[in-house]
Design a protein around this nucleic acid. Structure first.
Lengths: 258, 258
DNA sequence: CAAAATCAAGCAAAGTCGTGCAAATATGTT
DNA sequence: AACATATTTGCACGACTTTGCTTGATTTTG
């Protein structure tokens, strides 16, 4: 396993779980605890996390007096968040008044919800309780929740009950969340159940739009959802290079930067 | 569990409940009381809380000696929080390993969830996305969400879809939330749709337990769910007087104070 | 006052950390 | 291709931290 890849995954895990336990990761990835500790040391040096005995915590949660490293870090976080937020803003503009849309789980789609205007009148169907809670604030949006067994890693419902409920709806647009976008492999996700749900959702949607932040581009996860050209649009970061974009266009995928 | 993680949770719990009881946290997190006491000692050293015999209090409460009126007000708020938390604790103890329970929406039931031990293995069915999100932290609890149209005022799903999903389940215990408890009127709530859902849930549950904080007692809301004696138990505040309790017992209602 | 609960201090076991070192693997140069 | 240089990784070692337990003091409660 590559060092940079590991560091990347550490930060991702920190975002997802709010904490890092060195021993857990060493077991999970079959490397020594020393290696994880070294990674944590270096990431802490860059101000990307806070080391604690046994692992690490996000710097935001850490209650430390402002250190010189903190300024640097906050700027960097803002930057990464900013491009995700841009993506969310662009996606939010695609929802027109009166439409019925399905919003998938995931942090990128959470950004979409954050950017929805409070006055928007629309119907949002979701299988993510997190998204549903975020939409309570919007008085004009009718929210419908797809029930089922809660898959905790992604915080969305899955299983037969969810599939059954999905089969009884039709939506204008489906905002699909993915963990991997790859020109040859296609769109992919980390859980088999989820991949079935995503295909079912695509089948009942007139349009499917994928929101993929830069870190998802040119990566693949275990379970393939469909090919890139099978969705109506892939929305990604402005930071992605021209040649990368072209590799997707060669596959006739409709990929757009914002 | 990481030390720093635990300290953050202590401060969070202090904000939520207005007080810390060392023994309770040691039971809930399955660490020795010494460990909790050590954490409290160190947090007190940093001035983040005020140690008291048996646990800790927020520093703000202690500092308010200056304005007598404010002490009273803040103290009352803290007290109200504390008694709600007590109710949650008592209810949490009623859930036994392996059981299948339905947890209704509402702040009192949210307190129940906060007090569930992390190691509890059980199945929780809910129609509240808020409750579902709170349970993501619990690794051993299987969460099932009842889908439907989201009723925003209470943040629970309602409607035909929800009723249909409810008709297909059976639970050991239903923790019902209400907005009114009255000896003559019975149990009531503020929304018609919700009252139907609550009756349906009661019908599929072997036991129904009502959690009612002091402010609900002897009040009535527009939509009646059922009579007080039709549920297996009504759990309420220790602050309720004996004569009030007796007025319910005369109706053969099983009301208990904690 | 006396029983019960809570507390602090000290101790030992287990867990975690940093440093130095050597083997394995990449990278660059001749 | 052969060699030198740099990076990465796992291991060993001693130092440090955390934790639960014991003991005896202190506080609370009836």
């Amino acid at each position: 396993m590559l060092t940079s890849q590991r560091k990347h995954l550490i930060l991702e895990s920190l975002r997802d779980n709010g904490q890092i336990v060195a021993k857990e990761l060493s077991l999970q990835w079959e490397v020594s605890e020393d290696t994880i500790r070294r990674d944590l040391r270096e990431l802490a040096q860059e101000g990307l996390l806070q080391r604690v005995h046994g692992g690490a915590m996000p710097t935001t949660t850490a209650k430390l007096a402002s250190s010189p490293a903190m300024v640097d870090l906050k700027g960097r976080q803002k930057l990464a968040q900013h491009s995700k937020s841009k993506l969310g803003q662009a996606a939010a503009k695609l929802i027109k008044p009166g439409q019925v849309v399905f919003i998938d789980g995931g942090t990128t789609n959470a950004q979409l919800v954050k950017n929805l205007p409070l006055s928007l009148r629309a119907t949002v169907i979701t299988h993510s309780p997190t998204i549903a809670v975020a939409l309570i604030e919007h008085p004009e949006i009718e929210v419908v929740i797809i029930g089922g067994k809660l898959f905790k890693h992604s915080a969305v419902t899955v299983g037969a009950a969810a599939l059954d409920a999905i089969s009884r709806i039709r939506t204008d647009t489906y905002f699909m969340g993915v963990t991997g976008v790859h020109a040859e492999v296609g769109l992919s996700t980390g859980d088999l159940e989820e991949s079935y749900i995503k295909r079912a959702l695509q089948a009942v949607a007139a349009n499917t739009i994928v929101l993929a932040s830069a870190d998802k581009i040119d990566t693949a996860s275990p379970y393939i959802i469909c090919q890139c050209q099978q969705v109506n649009m892939i929305l990604t970061d402005a930071t992605i290079g021209d040649e990368t974009i072209n590799s997707y266009k060669e596959q006739k995928a409709n990929i757009k930067r914002v």
